[in-house]
Design a protein around this nucleic acid. Sequence first.
RNA 1: GCGCCUGUAGCUCAGCUGGAUAGAGCAACGGACUUCUAAUCCGUAGGUCGCAGGUUCGAAUCCUGCCAGGCGCGCCA
Length: 552
Amino acid sequence: MIKEQIKDILDKYFNEGVEQGLWTNAAAGSYAVELPKHTSHGDFSTNMAMLIGGREKKNPREVASLLAEQMGTHIDLFSKVEIAGPGFVNFFVRDAVWQSVIKPVCEKAYGYGSSGIGQQKKVLVEFVSANPTGPLSIGHGRQAVLGDAIARLLEATGHEVTREYYYNDAGRQMRVLGESTRARYMELLDLGAEFPEDGYQGEYIYDIARKLISEKNDSLKDTADVAPFKEKAEQEIFANIAETLARLDIRFDNYYNEHSLYEKGLVDDVVARLREKGLAYDHDGAVWFKTTEFGQEQDRVIIKSTGEPTYRLPDIAYHREKLKRGFDWLVNIFGSDHIATVPDVLAGIRALGYDDSMVTVVLHQFVTLTREGKQVKMSTRKANFITVDELFDEVGPDVIRFFFLTRKADSQLEFDLDLATKESQENPVFYVQYANARLRSIQKKAEEKNIRRNPLQEVSLGKLSLPEELNMLKALASYPELVEDSALDLSPHRIIFFLMDLAGQFHSYYNSHLVISDDPELTQARLWLAEALRIVFHNGLRVVGLSAPETM
RNA sequence: GCGCCUGUAGCUCAGCUGGAUAGAGCAACGGACUUCUAAUCCGUAGGUCGCAGGUUCGAAUCCUGCCAGGCGCGCCA
């Protein structure tokens, strides 16, 4: 908010300079207000003079001195404005300005950091979308946590969010699942059965078979149809997935079944539309989509010569349907193995007359699993993967969330099983939560001593003059913009790093300064600072789905 | 062969989309609890930002070319 104020003033002087013919508006929109790394360079700086100088062959330092002179007149905001280096203009903000951020933080409380920039835009966040063939793996865990944190950030910034899980229970995978279940069922009944070569070997299939036996005895032994097995397996696995997600405090608004697209004729309709537009044609008994019209190297099959559609077709139909349902923005969280489908889907919706900029795909890289220093290949079919549930037995939901969120989506994530337990004790999530708990503890101590916070307008916030205090106040002031940036960038990891940094500042401060001291005025000011910090820790933790415990 | 992602301290990762002297957490070493929670703090050490060019006032960040790892490139999903 202080940054915005400076930007506004800067814009004003820039435009005045243009009107007065001091420079052209060539640099419009390219200059920025930045946060210098070193305190000796002020609280904010701008590169405007250098950009003007570079474009117009003017001496940047001359432009800078002009600018500095004008900015320096805002004595309510700045204690000092100076020129540095090749032409930076550095702004030193008055302590009182920083101290005053406590007011908005405490007034807005748990709403601090939330905003309306999303303008109630309807966003559909699609994530997990794993077919129900087995428990959620660590890879799914990353996606679940990432998608949920993104959804929360979008909610916090005034978007109307729907969380959706898209699945297909009709394909080959599911038939194999049914056959695997039947084989285990027969095996448990000692009726002998051949286990399908590419069947699902996980222990959970036995569990499902056992349930089937306890419910139906051996009444299914002569059934030729795999449907009852498939349906039971699907139902059990879905229940398990939902439970796992619930343990992570992740809930979906919708489970969207691919099959319903066929039932509603939406898949056929896409083919018809594409044919109408001359973007689909028959060749070798299959139906092809002219993806070459959309910059791809080759056309793609959408209906096989057997008459079955390829995965692309329902995917396109699904995205079109999402847009028809009135969403303004589709955010898809996909694993990197889905890279190839993205251009096809985007081409599809463009072909159908929609703007593909309404779709944003967050591709997250894989989770690689290492055990005793060696990489383990994971496969659902072979059941040699680690499930989110197993992880749960070792560590709690906050550790899991934090672990997955501490990397940006683009990075591969190495999961070291040997460190999992260790992580549970040393995970930095506790470092942040501990800061929150300590702040709460200070407040409880104050209550015990019968010290109440006086109304803010009666408190001398000027007492908060230590560099550590001012730095924390600056962090508090930057929080709302951080939430906006993280949301629009779909980058929850930025919140995590902010929290770790702020926690570091606070713990250090805590160890060398008392909040509750013999100086009543100072105590009042610091209690308000503590409250503002607590609010921001709480909000930051919650906005990415972490808990904010008051005691630890 | 082609496309996308990654390469930063011993390890795991940030680096606010081009800024000034590159950061954090682990791991290592040495210290700090009669004061609001030691799940904490303080200090020491650790770097050719994969390599080589280029763009400009200025590059870990942008462009090109190599090198290495991951994921894809089906009438599989």
